[in-house]
């Protein structure tokens, strides 16, 4: 699946997006998997309460299932307006 990062999450991980091959069942599972990969992921996902997630361009929850999802995006709380 395509995983995207925005704002300081993007800066901490170092790429705006990447393709991730995963069997993770939920967003939480995906995060746990990414955190074991490299320190930069562990740093970006250290505090989940500071993050938001969108699945296929819709705001979602960290316990949401990933079955059928093509795009996951992680970002800090939005600051529009």
């Amino acid at each position: 699946m395509n995983v995207m990062y925005f704002a300081w999450v993007r800066e901490r991980i170092g790429v705006p997006q990447e393709t991730v091959e995963t069997e993770a069942a939920t967003v939480n599972d995906l995060i746990a998997e990414l955190k074991t990969r490299e320190d930069r992921y562990a740093a970006a996902f250290a505090d989940i309460s500071a993050l938001r997630v969108a699945l296929d361009q819709e705001l979602s929850d960290f316990d949401a299932p990933l079955a059928g999802v093509r795009e996951v995006a992680f970002f800090p709380p939005m600051t529009g307006g």
């Binding site: 925005f6 704002a7 300081w8 705001l59 800090p76 709380p77 939005m78 600051t79 529009g80 307006g81």
Partner: peptide, 23 residues
């Protein structure tokens, strides 16, 4: 709603450096 639910993120570049605006 635009402030908290539209996917925008602001970064301020000042004389002291650059920082993301916190919600």
């Amino acid at each position: 709603y635009l402030k908290s639910r539209a996917p925008f993120w602001k970064k301020e570049i000042t004389d002291q450096g650059a920082d993301w605006v916190a919600a």
